[in-house]
Simulated scan of single mutants.
Amino acid sequence: MSAKKEKPIDLKNLEPDEKVKYEIAEELGLLDKVMAEGWRSLSSKETGRIGGLITKRKRKS
């Protein structure tokens, strides 16, 4: 199995949905972990928390 090369993330040029995801990760103190190790490094609890907050924000707008 080959390792997938990921391009560096440019936080200033993200799609609106992606931007919200990164903003929430930052608010929860997980952004450094995501930037260093990727989204797969998060636990299911952390991922669920981010997903829940995204859903909550989408309902508000």
Rank of each mutant, 00 (worst) to 15 (best):
K12D: 01
E23N: 14
L31I: 06
L11M: 13
L28A: 13
K5Y: 13
V20Q: 06
W39P: 00
E6Q: 14
E46P: 01
D32Q: 08
G38T: 02
L31A: 03
K19R: 15
S44P: 01
E46K: 05
V34Q: 02
E46R: 04
L28E: 12
S61K: 15
A25L: 12
S41H: 04
V34A: 02
G48H: 03
E37L: 12
L28V: 08
T47L: 14
S41A: 15
N13C: 06
K21V: 05
R59E: 11
A3Q: 10
K56V: 08
R59Q: 10
E18N: 05
K5D: 07
I50Y: 06
S61P: 01
I50D: 06
R57A: 07
G48P: 00
K4C: 11
L42S: 12
L11V: 12
K33C: 04
R40A: 14
L11T: 14
I54S: 02
L53V: 11
R49E: 15
K12H: 03
K7G: 06
E15W: 05
T55I: 13
S41R: 09
E23I: 13
D10T: 11
G38R: 00
P8E: 15
I54P: 02
A36W: 03
K12F: 00
S44L: 05
L14F: 04
K7S: 14
E6D: 09
E37I: 00
K58Y: 10
W39G: 03
G51E: 11
K58P: 00
L53D: 07
K56Q: 14
K33V: 10
L30K: 05
V34D: 01
R49W: 04
K5H: 03
D17L: 13
E26D: 15
K4F: 12
D17V: 14
I54H: 04
K45V: 15
K45C: 03
E18P: 00
G29R: 08
P8L: 14
W39Y: 13
D32H: 06
I24P: 00
M35N: 06
S44R: 13
E46Y: 05
K58M: 07
V34G: 01
Y22K: 06
S43H: 08
I50S: 11
E18F: 03
K33D: 09
T47Q: 11
L30G: 06
M35R: 05
S41G: 07
I9H: 08
E46L: 07
G29E: 09
E15P: 00
M35P: 03
I50E: 03
G52M: 04
K58Q: 08
G51C: 05
A3T: 02
E15V: 08
I9K: 14
L11P: 02
D17N: 15
K7P: 02
D10A: 14
I9Q: 05
G51S: 07
S2D: 13
L11D: 07
S43L: 05
K60I: 08
A25C: 12
E18W: 00
E6F: 11
K7M: 05
S61H: 08
K21R: 15
E46C: 03
T55H: 09
E23W: 11
K21W: 13
P8Q: 14
A3D: 02
I54R: 04
K45M: 10
E23C: 10
S41N: 13
S61D: 05
K7Q: 14
A3E: 04
E26H: 09
S2G: 12
T55R: 13
K7I: 14
E46W: 07
L31R: 02
